[in-house]
Nucleic acid binder design. Structure first.
Length: 586
DNA sequence: GGAAACAGCGCG
DNA sequence: AAAGCGCGCTGTTTCC
């Protein structure tokens, strides 16, 4: 009954709203349960962390603020963690688009809440700097973060939720999204334990020793020389696609672009060193020594996560490329001495989410307790696991050609409910409609110009070229909405997983602080904590004696997330789980 | 001379 | 062997 526990609020759900007041002070408004008295107080910047910690200990309220990204980092720095929050800016963007909200005009009018906070901009609230001015009195418009506007937005949002067609689902989504905001700030504060020596070793092995500034590494220089010799062009730039393409043509290599997948089909002696050069160039520019200098300090890599940064609800990152760390650098992700990494990823998250959403019994059965793709092979639908994978991805992404185009029709016969769900989402998108995830995040409506252009092109007298272009545009949008419902619901599952895990880990006992683990700061060097998240994968950094318990917590949380989203469904979400000192390359 | 777009490639 | 969805980041080219 995990679901009921979250949906029907406990008897006295205090909310504590944080906002900027006058004179650089912060106002705290405690919204109590009915019948109790509303209370508020304000405090100076240097008193804030202590005041928040005291209220958290006494009432454990849901903290309401403009953005976790603006308020939470300095609380964490002061050693304060919070259990739950309501992130108005993230929630605003969900509610104003959601099809489940009946009346969103008020929210849409408050468009100052639509702007995502620029993570590079220093936080503009709480008056924690000495130079803070009293913004409240000097501005005319409503400003997120000021206490009056914060309370007004909370009221708008509560009305929108209470009046929605499916308030319980929306409440789950909002709680999960807000938990994500806490987690993102905590992940950044804790940092990813990073072994600079190992990273340097991988770079040196691949590229040669670190060159002096401005120079290219040895092995890139020699690979480039091989390419130029083979092309008979001693000066050609390998970093300029147009120039390189012309040089390739002059050497008789018939390609339409310089991308690796097109090059690798050709026999020419320039191809092998060129592909080698491209690999090295990529590693150097994206995650080379300059990246190490910029992003890793005191054994921690601290990327910037952007919760809700993708339309589907997935996280994005901004700076540091947290979600694109190449697998070959994974071994640099390494536990502090005396600590361990507990890594877990969900097998075939998206297909399983689709199976659960559509309650497709055959598809659920194919994945029950094992690899879903192997299950499809065993059911006799295809002959190889690779075929099953390509077919399922084609179903999720709207593939029509090649292997996936051949397998999808067979999947449609075997898994009719699952396929009907994604096919329906695609049809809605092609018509210009909106689709919605399991918990209520809706896809953005198409631009007005798009709808208009489609209507014009669909007139019988429209030029054939225009009609063709219009059909292609419709299909593009259909593939987007087809994938949106699945990718978005998978993101909701992952948030629920992490939210449950985070609360379990917070109840772990404290251990003695370790010298190297202390690089994670006062909060995260005394017990197991989340260190990494990547769509369907988490890594917990744990004192060795807590690693087994952390693994159990990860599994329990995955089960809890499944029950929370799909109560009563037989769907399962098996994990690949490993306890190691060093992350595996795979 | 700086912003925007593109190419290419890393991740799920 | 690539395709079909969603991203970020770098270096280069193009545009204003």
């Amino acid at each position: 009954m995990a679901r009921a526990g979250l949906v029907t609020s406990p008897p006295s759900p205090a909310w504590c709203v944080l906002g900027r007041g006058g004179g650089g002070r912060t106002v705290l408004v405690l919204l109590p349960a009915e019948g109790e008295e509303l209370s508020h107080r304000d405090c100076a910047p240097e008193e804030l962390a202590e005041a928040v910690a005291r209220i958290e200990a006494e009432h454990s309220p849901r903290w309401v603020w403009s953005d976790a990204a603006a308020w939470y980092p300095r609380l964490l720095a002061a050693g304060v963690t919070l259990e739950r929050c309501h992130d108005l800016r993230l929630v605003h963007r969900i509610l104003r688009h959601s099809e489940l909200v009946r009346e969103a005009d008020g929210l849409r009018a408050a468009d100052e809440w639509d702007t995502p906070l620029d993570p590079y901009e220093p936080p503009r609230e709480t008056g924690a700097t000495l130079f803070d001015i009293d913004a409240g009195s000097s501005r005319s418009g409503a400003v997120p973060g000021e206490i009056e506007e914060t309370l007004a937005e909370l009221t708008r949002q509560r009305e929108a939720i209470d009046g929605s067609r499916e308030a319980p689902r929306l409440r789950l989504l909002i709680a999960a999204e807000s938990a994500g905001a806490l987690i993102a700030a905590e992940l950044q504060a804790a940092g990813i334990p990073w072994d600079v020596v190992e990273h340097d070793r991988i770079l040196t092995e691949a590229l040669g020793p670190r060159p002096s500034p401005g120079a290219a590494p040895e092995r890139m220089v020699s690979a480039a020389a091989e390419v130029r010799t083979a092309l008979g062009d001693p000066l050609v730039s390998l970093d300029s696609p147009p120039k390189l393409l012309r040089a390739l043509h002059r050497a008789g290599i018939d390609v339409s672009s310089t991308s690796q997948w097109e090059l690798q089909g050709h026999e020419h002696p320039a191809v092998e060193p060129l592909l080698r050069y491209k690999k090295m160039s990529r590693l150097l520019t994206a995650n080379g020594w300059a990246w190490l200098d910029e992003w890793v300090h005191e054994d921690r890599y601290r990327p910037v996560y952007v919760p809700g940064g993708v339309v589907t609800g997935r996280w994005a990152s901004s700076g540091g490329g947290a979600l694109q760390i190449p697998r070959r650098l994974r071994p640099a992700l390494c536990a502090a001495p005396g600590w361990l990494l507990v890594s877990a990823d969900v097998s075939q998250l998206e297909p399983r989410v689709l199976a659960a959403m559509s309650a497709d019994r055959q598809m659920i059965a194919a994945g029950a307790g094992k690899d879903l793709y192997s299950g499809i092979v065993e059911a006799g639908i295809v002959t190889t696991r690779q075929e099953a994978k390509v077919g399922v991805l084609g179903a999720l992404y709207g593939g029509t050609t090649g292997d996936s185009g051949r397998v999808v029709p067979r999947l449609r016969r075997t898994f009719p409910e699952a396929m009907a769900l994604v096919d329906g989402a695609a049809a809605t998108g092609e018509r210009g409609g909106t689709v919605t995830t399991w918990l209520g995040r809706s896809s953005p409506a198409p631009e007005e110009s798009w709808t208009l252009a489609q209507r014009t092109a669909n007139q019988p007298d429209a030029p054939a070229g225009e009609q063709e272009r219009s059909r292609r545009s419709e299909r593009d949008r259909g593939r987007f909405t087809r994938n949106f419902v699945v990718q978005g619901t998978a993101a909701e599952w992952a948030l629920s997983w992490m939210a449950a895990l985070r609360l379990r880990l917070a109840r772990f006992p404290e251990v003695a602080e370790d010298e190297r683990a202390s690089a994670s700061g006062p909060v995260f060097s005394r017990r197991a904590h989340l260190a990494f998240f990547l769509h369907d994968e988490v890594i917990v950094h744990a004192p060795a004696e807590q690693a087994e318990a952390a693994a159990t917590a990860i599994r329990e949380s995955a089960d809890a997330a499944g029950r929370l989203l799909f109560p009563g469904s037989p769907i399962d979400f098996p994990l690949d789980l490993q306890i190691t000192e060093r992350s595996a390359e795979k």
